[in-house]
């Protein structure tokens, strides 16, 4: 509520203290793309709320730094969601240390612009290989470890609804991700496992800030009704909501956390 607006101005450590909730006590979570950005922000929030988190990402250096930041209730497994053997290794590690899995945040994704007219097969394969195929196998391979009452969260994007100039492959891949939740909610009927899509818009991750520069961040923020970019922690907060029983009647949903960008 409007406490949220105060939170934005608060530096991260203060924010962390403010939200000492225990909604995820004792839960085990996997977060792909968990070393930086939205994945890392979610990992921080999950750990704060009592979860044990496995972060999965391609860059060992970033993973090491993240685990150092997250503390004793976090592990890192290096790998790519587009490589099935890597995913198998991830879930073997989860099984070995925790036995079962409650929460999967399939968040790893990639996107780069390539205008219509210049799109290559390699570009499509890379984008869809990570965002769609990677998401599918992240979830499919997690299922044997998931008990009743689990939560699967997929990272969509406002671009999945609106499109984004020059981002054909990315936008279409995120529309596909949004649709996965619809079919899986059906496929998972009777298991108690919920699956929802979290769709951010303009989010000020380190990567985005670097790519956009000062001017770009301002321009991007100005496009949203809230007139700024999101702090990754604001996305992590909603991921924690979807992971917890506070969202117990939600499945197949898309939750937009985009400052209104794709909602008007």
């Amino acid at each position: 509520m409007n406490e949220d607006t105060q939170i934005h101005a608060t530096p991260f450590p203060a924010l962390r203290k403010k939200h000492a909730m225990n909604r995820l006590n004792g839960r085990t979570a996997v977060i792909t793309g968990g070393a930086t950005g939205i994945g890392l922000a979610a990992a921080k929030r999950f750990v704060e709320e009592g979860a044990f988190v496995f972060i999965f990402g391609r860059r060992q250096e970033a993973l090491d730094a993240a685990v150092g930041d997250l503390g004793p209730h976090a592990r890192a497994v290096q790998g790519s969601v587009s490589d099935e053997a890597d995913l198998d290794r991830l879930y073997r590690a989860v099984k070995a240390e925790r036995g079962t899995l409650d929460i999967v945040f399939a968040n790893a994704g990639t996107g780069s612009p390539l205008p219509l007219g210049q799109i290559t097969a390699g570009h499509i394969d890379e984008t869809f290989g990570t965002n769609v195929k990677g998401t599918i196998f992240t979830v499919q391979k997690a299922l044997p470890l998931m008990g009743n009452g689990g939560s699967i969260i997929l990272t969509g994007s406002s671009a999945g609804t609106t499109g984004a100039a020059g981002f054909t492959a990315y936008s279409a891949s995120k529309a596909a991700v949004r649709n996965l939740a619809r079919t899986w909610a059906e496929d998972l009927k009777g298991t108690g496992i919920r699956v929802n899509v979290l769709s951010p818009g303009a989010t000020a991750t380190e990567l985005a800030k670097e790519a956009l520069g000062e001017e770009g961040q301002k321009a991007y923020g100005a496009m949203t009704p809230l007139q700024r970019m999101a702090d990754p922690a604001e996305i992590g907060a909603v991921a924690a909501f979807l992971a917890s029983s506070d969202s117990s009647f939600m499945t197949a949903s898309e939750v937009a956390v985009d400052g209104g960008l794709a909602q008007l």
């Binding site: 909610a185 059906e186 009927k189 029983s245 969202s247 009647f249």
Partner: peptide, 18 residues
């Protein structure tokens, strides 16, 4: 339509309003 797991208790709805 297809999917609802069960009828919602009013509590899980108020969680969202929160």
């Amino acid at each position: 339509r297809h999917t609802a797991l069960r009828t919602c208790s009013t509590d899980s709805c108020s969680n969202c309003a929160l």
